[in-house]
């Protein structure tokens, strides 16, 4: 899932400067799972902001509302008769959700309260790690289920660079070299042949805005010309 982190109070305070009535909107999707932007985090942030605004005598009124997911208009619709009196909206959803919110209310300034970090996994409670760069051309079948695009600091496709320190990545001793891991796993599975072949220069599939339109739904959106 998408992982995000709440921005610093100072940065948020700076963004909201000059607005008098703000609605902080949470998201019940990914950011709620990684404890960054769900209902609980919205309330936490608002409590902290209220304290700061009071201390510094800044007259801002800040309320909250959390929708199921900000990346779906049907859930954002719940906000339609709430947003009216607010002069700014804040989103605790990922960058996609935040944009979809801004798209629904184009007259309202919208501010992100979180930084969207990566697509990752829950290693343990409160511990998340990146695993996928969403490159649009998955090689995990060749590389033993370990991604060289996300896990190798240089994103190499043909084996390790000259730099591993022991079995660690040269840029961080705490991080295992992705290619050492790939080698070991494939060796264990008797599939080393996969990486003895040259992996040819790839055509990057992530250089334009991504779009998926399922075949079975195409007729809904594209009018056939007769």
């Amino acid at each position: 899932m998408i992982k995000a982190e709440v921005k610093s109070l100072d940065e948020i305070k700076e963004m909201l400067k000059g607005y008098r009535k703000v609605l902080n909107t949470g998201c019940g999707g990914c950011v709620s799972v990684c404890l960054a932007g769900g209902q609980k985090e919205v309330n936490n942030l608002n409590t902290k902001l209220k304290v700061v605004f009071k201390q510094e005598n800044i007259p801002v009124e800040i309320d909250s509302f959390t929708v199921e997911r900000q990346c779906e208009q049907q859930f954002l619709a719940e906000l339609d008769h709430i947003v009216g009196p607010y002069d700014a909206l804040m989103s605790m959803a990922c960058g996609a959700g935040c944009q979809f919110l801004a798209e629904r209310y184009p007259d309202k300034p919208v501010f992100p309260a979180v930084d969207t970090e990566f697509i990752g996994v829950n290693k343990d409670i409160g511990w998340y790690e990146e695993r996928c760069k969403a490159c649009g051309d998955c090689v995990l079948g060749i590389t033993g289920g370990i991604c060289p695009v996300a896990m190798c600091a240089k994103g190499l496709f043909n084996g390790p660079c000259g730099g591993p320190q022991g079995e660690s990545c040269e840029v961080d001793k705490e991080v295992p070299c992705a290619w050492v891991s790939i080698y070991k796993r494939l060796k264990g599975q008797g599939r080393l042949d996969n990486i003895l072949k040259i992996y040819a220069t790839r055509e990057w599939e992530d250089q334009l805005q991504g779009k998926i339109l399922l075949e079975q739904y195409k007729s809904r959106y594209i009018q056939e010309t007769k």
Binding site: N158, G159, P160, G162, G166, E167, C177
Partner: peptide, 16 residues
């Protein structure tokens, strides 16, 4: 680099 891990793979990387 013959001195990097995984040692056994280095000669194959050379071959590539």
């Amino acid at each position: 680099n013959p001195f990097g891990q995984p040692y056994e793979f280095r000669v194959h990387r050379l071959a590539k």
